[in-house]
Design a protein around this nucleic acid. Sequence first.
DNA 1: CGCGTGCCTTGACTTTGATCAAACCGCGCG
DNA 2: CGCGCGGTTTGATCAAAGTCAAGGCACGCG
Lengths: 243, 243
Amino acid sequence: MSVKRQDIHNSDIPVLCRACEARHKGVCGALTAEQLIDLNKQSVLKRVEPGVELLGETRQTESYANIISGVVKLTKMMADGRQQIVGLQFAPDFLGRPFRPDSGITADAATEVNVCSFPKKMLDRMIKDTPELEHKLLEQSLKELDEARDWMLTLGRKTASEKVASFLYLIATHINPDAGTVEGSMRFDLPLTRSDIADFLGLTIETVSRQLTKLRKDEVILIHNNRHVEVPSLARLAECASR
Amino acid sequence: MSVKRQDIHNSDIPVLCRACEARHKGVCGALTAEQLIDLNKQSVLKRVEPGVELLGETRQTESYANIISGVVKLTKMMADGRQQIVGLQFAPDFLGRPFRPDSGITADAATEVNVCSFPKKMLDRMIKDTPELEHKLLEQSLKELDEARDWMLTLGRKTASEKVASFLYLIATHINPDAGTVEGSMRFDLPLTRSDIADFLGLTIETVSRQLTKLRKDEVILIHNNRHVEVPSLARLAECASR
DNA sequence: CGCGTGCCTTGACTTTGATCAAACCGCGCG
DNA sequence: CGCGCGGTTTGATCAAAGTCAAGGCACGCG
């Protein structure tokens, strides 16, 4: 089974696209074994360094991708440089915009990211004779729509400290599907810089920093090394996120 | 062809659900003639007064609806009463959430609204043997997703006056698909109260009011009777919306 | 080792928009 | 007609977040 490798910084992780299907419940889950094999032949595994653009203005809109690991940020930008992160995507999310060529959004790697990418045309063709695929895509978009609207409430109506707590809560509940389910303490690495967090929350880096230290002083979180976060009580954090 | 009538304030507009299909390009456009007839039999036409809840906490989540006329606001609310409008819907938008029972959103009529409503189960069944329907739903969700993300940029990164201008621009471009295409002046009635506008923009009514009078003084808009808006130059308004 | 660089924090001050309070305006009604 | 009412405007003051500026800290490199 042939799998091309086009790793951006010449890594060589031996993963088939089938892996996306096997390990996650991504969009490819709807495909038959045969279709998967076809898709695999066209698939390219990429390792992407933080900050590199995956989709959008400059890079190919000619392909879709499944996120295998890492965090991807979807960004919108105004002419004068102001920007807003309009969504975060985690494995096993699907990356790309069906039907429309582009929607003014760029997708960049926030952390190191591994994606399995394949030609847009190929999946578009498969959609036609596999309705189940379209169903998966619909579920994915509805999920993203729910998340976007949740975040609109955060952006429009929460205070700076509620925003920061909401962000931490979002990361805590998305990055480690299993590790944190215990009612006790949970840990994770921040996938975003302060500047990214500010762009996600509609704040400045200074405000983000101040609110983080406030949460630290209130013992809602602990931060080591500027990246590693410990949350003694997720419930406590959730409280801070909405009052 | 039987059509039940269940008009909330006993109006009696004689419209079939087919009308939704004939007059608009809504989700029903994907159905065959036979399916449409079946759907018509189950359809109910409703006229809804401003402020009445169409979907959400208290009313039936057991039905979907197509908007025939009017403006519907999608609202999210926090425990302490703060609320945010996370989307506006116009004819011929589809109203309802496939697959998931509910997502913490309520849909209320902003203006007087006419909808054609039908049982959730019925459409869910039709989805199974009409992939084209699912395709329409996917397109609708992607459109809503694009709009939600556009609005996130507005909420997170624009100033109060840019927000108000963005709102007026959005209404101007959505409410009158034809009337305003001339490069000259265009008019419309505000479908939202100041309080709604504030909830849509993440502001207070006072700030909305002040920014509206500012836009009036700058001759970007004219307002008569507190509702009727005149925009001499849409391009000028668009400028105000992003700087 | 010392230095430069990038990222983060902290402090002093300013600005934007929120809050509080009063007045206004159109409208329906006794 | 006067009155009350909801929605809106306007003004005075306040607070939250932004801006500007300095300093800290970790890390890599000569």
